[in-house]
Amino acid sequence: MDIAENAALVVVDVQKGFDFPGLGARNNPGADDNIATLVDVWQASGRPVVFVRHDSVSADSPLRPGQEGNDFKDYVEQRRGKGAGDELFLTKTVNSAFYGTPDLDGWLKAREITQVVVAGIQTNLCVETTSRMGGNLGYGVVVAYDATYTFDVEGPFGWRRTADEIGQAAAVSLHGGGFARVVNTADVVVGASAA
């Protein structure tokens, strides 16, 4: 696959609060390692990296500002500021990084970036919403599926779905709906190395 020389890696909500107990079973146990690999590849190649943090406005959320859960996971924090390329840190209070501060769309356009690779947490929420909006805005969106994860969830009518089912449904919706190309981390790394 083709990864542009200036493709931006968008790392969504890789925060400590997602490691707290009570969220239920998760999928993709290797996702954190894959996210770290993508950041390392992007930084080594001088490509731009966007670090997105969710600042929840919910009083009971571990992701609200001032709480330990709002902080980036250590492996992400340790990598911030280490790359040769441009870096953006943005915060958001909703699911899409395109509704964050500063303006992601404006930042990408100012750098003539037309392709984004999305990784992070949660597959079916902020990763999916950011990817859908990116597709709607005309970006070539690639989702590194195994560099994302989510949790078991209960919906209406007592329906329960496992994290695997939820993650796969999000991937099928993104890929099948034409919003993004959903691949694995290894595919992205090979594509980035070939550029």
Rank of each mutant, 00 (worst) to 15 (best):
S56W: 07
A36M: 05
V141N: 04
W42E: 02
R111M: 08
G17H: 06
L104M: 03
S173P: 03
K109I: 08
N6S: 05
E112Q: 13
R64Q: 15
Q78G: 00
N6E: 06
G138A: 13
A194K: 08
S193K: 12
E77N: 00
A84W: 01
A36T: 15
Y75H: 15
N184Q: 14
G178R: 10
V52F: 01
A25P: 06
N136Y: 10
Q168G: 05
G24E: 10
T148W: 02
S61Y: 05
Y145N: 08
H175T: 07
G167P: 13
G69E: 08
D40H: 13
G106R: 11
R160T: 12
I35P: 01
V142W: 11
S173G: 14
S56F: 04
D40T: 14
V12E: 10
F151L: 03
F18I: 01
V41F: 05
A97P: 02
L63I: 12
F18L: 03
D74I: 00
V52C: 00
H54S: 05
A170Y: 13
R80M: 09
W107D: 03
V188G: 09
M1H: 13
E128F: 02
A31Y: 13
N27I: 03
D146N: 15
L108D: 02
V57Q: 12
V189P: 02
N124R: 11
G69F: 01
V14S: 02
Q15E: 04
D40E: 13
A169R: 12
V142R: 06
V172A: 10
T93G: 10
Y99W: 07
T130Q: 04
F151I: 11
R80I: 09
V117P: 10
V153S: 14
G85Q: 07
A186R: 07
Q43I: 06
G106K: 05
G83C: 04
I166M: 14
G135E: 11
A147G: 14
L38M: 07
A169M: 09
G176C: 07
A36Y: 03
Y139F: 15
N34D: 09
V10H: 00
G22I: 12
N6T: 06
I3L: 08
H54M: 04
E112G: 11
D32S: 04
V188R: 09
V118I: 15
L174I: 09
E112D: 15
A180V: 05
G69S: 07
G83H: 08
V143E: 05
K16G: 02
A192P: 09
V190E: 15
A194W: 10
S131G: 14
V172D: 09
V76W: 00
P62V: 02
G176H: 10
G81T: 05
T162N: 11
L108F: 01
E5C: 03
I121F: 15
D164R: 12
I113R: 00
Q67T: 15
Q168H: 08
V10F: 02
V190F: 04
N34M: 04
V39A: 08
C126L: 12
